[in-house]
C-alpha cells in the first residue's frame, strides 16, 4: 500500500522544475534546490564587489548573498521592476549547503517535466555558457532552458572572479 503511494510521489518530485523569466527568456531550476521565493527588497550592497553580486539580504537573521543572474550569464544588468523576485536556493558546497539568492524578472510556475521531454542543449546560440545548461524543454511551443544551479552558482568559481576583481 505504502509503496503504491510513495512511488509516484517520489518520481514526480524528481521531475519538478520552477520556471522563471529573465530578459524575456524562460528558465527553470530543479525544485529541490529552491528554498523559497521572496519579493525584491532590502538588498545591501557589499563594498568592492563586481556588479554580478547585488549584495546581501537579511533573511530572518541569516545573511544571504544575492546574485544578478543576468550579469552572471554575461548579459546586461537586471532592471528591478514590480514583479522582480529573489529565488532563494540551496547550493551544495564543501559537504555543506550555502544559501544564495538570485534576482529574476518574474517567477512563473512549478512544472512537471519528464526526462523524455528534455533535449540536449544547443551547442551554441543560447549565449550562455554551455556547462550552465542541463537541457532544453519545449513546453507549449515555448523553449524552457533548464539550468544546472550548482554550476551557475558555483561558490568556488564566483569566489575566484571576485578575487580577480579585487586584486586589480
Amino acid at each position: 500500500m505504502n509503496d503504491v503511494v510513495l512511488d509516484p510521489l517520489h518520481a514526480s518530485q524528481h521531475h519538478q522544475y520552477l520556471t522563471f523569466v529573465l530578459r524575456d527568456e524562460c528558465f527553470a531550476v530543479g525544485i529541490e534546490a529552491v528554498k523559497e521565493i521572496i519579493e525584491y527588497s532590502g538588498v545591501t550592497a557589499i563594498p568592492l564587489m563586481p556588479d554580478f553580486v547585488k549584495g546581501v539580504l537579511n533573511l530572518r537573521g541569516e545573511v544571504v548573498p544575492v546574485i544578478d543572474l543576468s550579469l552572471r550569464f554575461g548579459k546586461s544588468v537586471t532592471q528591478i521592476q514590480k514583479r522582480s523576485c529573489i529565488i532563494i536556493l540551496e547550493i551544495p558546497f564543501e559537504q555543506h549547503h550555502v544559501v544564495l539568492g538570485v534576482v529574476v524578472d518574474a517567477v512563473n510556475e512549478v512544472l512537471d517535466i519528464e526526462p523524455h521531454q528534455i533535449e540536449a542543449p544547443p551547442t551554441f546560440g543560447a549565449k550562455i555558457r554551455a556547462q550552465f545548461i542541463k537541457g532544453v524543454a519545449n513546453i507549449d511551443e515555448q523553449f524552457v532552458i533548464l539550468l544546472h544551479a550548482e554550476k551557475v552558482l558555483s561558490v568556488e568559481e564566483m569566489a575566484s572572479i571576485i578575487e580577480n576583481v579585487i586584486e586589480q
Partner: peptide
Amino acid sequence: LNKMFRAI
C-alpha cells in the same frame, strides 16, 4: 560572510 567573498 559567505566563503564566496573570501577575497574581500
